[in-house]
Every structure is written in C-alpha cells, then in structure tokens.
Computed example of a mutant assay.
Amino acid sequence: MLGRAANGVYWMARYLERAENTARLIDVGFHLALTRGNRASQEEEWKSVLTTTGQGAGYLVNHGEYTGVQVFNYLLREKDNPGSVLQMIEHARTNARVVRTSITNEVWEATNETWMLLRDLLSRPVRETNLGEVLAAIRRQAMLVRGAMEGSMLRNDVFNFARIGTFIERADSTARILDVKYYVLLPSVAWVGSNLDNVQWDTLLRSVAGNRAYSWLNAGNMDPRGIARFLILDRRFPRSLVFCYEKIRSNMAGLAMQYGGETQAHQLLRDAGAALHQITIEEVFEKGLHEFLREFIGKNTQIGGAIAADYRFIE
C-alpha cells in the first residue's frame, strides 16, 4: 500500500474516533456541570473538558468565559476551531475520498452519510435543548462507520491501518479523560460516598461508555481506584489502555506478516505493551496516576509517529 493511502485510512479512522470521543466528553461535561452547585464550579467543569481535548488555549483566543453553550458550540461547530467535531468529520470524509478505491462502498457511504448528516445538524448553533440529539447522532454515526468496516472489509493492510488508527486514538482519549477527570473529582472529599459523589463517578464512566460494564463487574461500588484499574488494566473493556494495545499489537502483527518484517514501531509497541501488562494498579498509584498517564500519552504519541515514519505516511 502506498504511504498516502495508508495515511488516509489511518487518519480517517482516527478522526472518526476523535469526533466520537469529543461528543462523549461534551456529554459528561454537561451532566457534571448540572451537579455543580454554583456557576464557578460549572465553569471549572467546562474548562476541564477543553483541557482534556487540548483546546483550552484556542478557546481563550475568542472567548473569555467558560459557559456551557459557548464551550460545546466551540467544540462542535465553530469555524475558527480546527479541532471541532465538524472539522474532524470533514477531515475523515476527505481522507476516505482519497482512499475510496481501497475501502468498500459500505464504508465510503457510511462516512459520506455521516458528513452530510452532521453538516446539517451543526449548520446552526446548538442549544441545550437539542444537545443530546446532536451528541447521540455523532456517537451513532461513528459506530455506523466502524460497523461497516468490521462487516465489509478484507482483513488486509487497509483494515489493519484503520484499526491501528482507531485504537491509538482511543487509548489517547481514555488516558486523557482519566487524567483530567480524576483530579476534577478527587478533591471532593466531603462528598465521598454520597449520592452526588456516585453520580459524578458514574458520569465519568459514561464518558467512555463504561458505566454499565463497571457497575456489573463491581456490584455498583464507585471506587476511584477500582475505576482507574478498570480503565487502565481490564482486558475485557474495549476502551481500556490494555485492551487498546492488545488490538494495536494484533493489527501491527498483521502488517509485519504482509510486509515481510517488523519495524521500529513494533518494538516500541512491544515495550509499551509489556509495561502495561506487568504493572499493577498499586504500582500505578505508588508512581503517581498523573505521572503514569502522562508517560503513557507520550509513548502513545511516539508509537503513532513511528508508525507514520515506518510506513511512509504522507501528510
């Protein structure tokens, strides 16, 4: 596969995953803001959403206050924001068009349909009254494209690059959400064990679609350390760091077989995966959760860069 095509399918998948993750973050920010007792606390929650997405500095260029309507419209549709959901969906469609001869008709049609639907939904400012509808559509359409990939594509290098892009992006998102949200919620010592405390932790899990799975596995016990273990080390949960890296390893192995050998990215991934499998949650907290997650995010970015270099991606 040419580097340009590999780059296209890889980033098509990453942009779709990032758009869905942004929608999930907005949803959790909105619900957590509702639990905050005053305006300052609500603004702090919306600020944390921007921080998690890495868009805090860009937001402050044109906005001074962290009001909900301003923040979620900035993240969803603002023209001056290159990281908005609307921009990401357009980038995903552009990349899909570049590789249209390499993907199936089902994948192209699902991607194009997603772009048309969200372009219309986001053509006007989003209000609190229709925010839920918009966020649900983003999540639904991203899953539609992934379903088309799973159900119609050959398990070849095109599929492998798409899956690698999805799980590199997903691992980054889970790590950032846990890093930022954990410290937003942790200081609420007076609320530990209260209904409000449980609602907030449940909402955090909702941001990664893990609230029901975690509750089922842990009998509804909202334990911060247990949540961290679930999101980092539970191999059964499809958004945990360990799960993402097991899928990346599998698809990277597929590339090695097809191209006749491993690359530097394979070794970086092997080292990072081994570290994840060997560490315990007690060791994570002994090291410092924030420090562990920042190190993970850095290594994840390094692996993504190595993949682009090894397979000659063209930006």
Rank of each mutant, 00 (worst) to 15 (best):
L241V: 11
R229C: 03
Y214R: 01
Y182S: 10
A213L: 11
A256I: 00
L269I: 03
L204R: 05
I279S: 04
V145T: 00
A275N: 10
E246S: 09
V192I: 09
R270M: 11
N211H: 13
G210H: 03
M149G: 01
S188M: 14
V189P: 11
R163P: 00
V180L: 09
S250Y: 02
V199M: 15
V192K: 15
V242P: 06
V208W: 00
R235L: 15
V158K: 04
M153I: 07
A253V: 05
N156Y: 07
L231A: 10
A213K: 03
L205C: 06
R146D: 02
V158Q: 05
V158C: 02
R235K: 13
I164M: 10
Q267V: 10
E262W: 08
A190Y: 05
G226A: 08
P224A: 15
R249V: 01
D202A: 06
G260R: 10
L185M: 12
D157M: 04
G220W: 14
R229A: 14
T174A: 14
A148D: 13
W201C: 14
N156S: 06
A256V: 05
D157E: 12
C244I: 02
L268I: 03
G273E: 04
S173M: 14
R146C: 04
A213T: 06
R140N: 05
N156W: 02
N160E: 13
A272I: 02
V189Q: 12
C244G: 10
A148I: 00
R212H: 15
S173R: 11
P238C: 00
R170L: 09
D271M: 10
R146Q: 04
A209T: 09
M257Y: 07
T203K: 06
R249K: 10
A265P: 06
S207H: 08
A253Q: 15
S250N: 12
V192E: 08
S152M: 14
F243L: 07
A265F: 07
M252A: 14
F230A: 13
I138E: 01
N160A: 15
F167D: 03
L217N: 03
T174G: 11
N198V: 14
S194N: 07
T280V: 08
L204K: 14
D157S: 11
G151E: 06
M149C: 09
G147D: 10
S240K: 05
G260H: 15
L144E: 03
A265M: 07
N211L: 12
M252N: 15
G220C: 15
V189R: 12
A213I: 05
E169R: 01
A272L: 07
R170Y: 12
R146V: 02
A190E: 14
D271P: 11
D202I: 08
V158T: 12
R225G: 06
A275I: 01
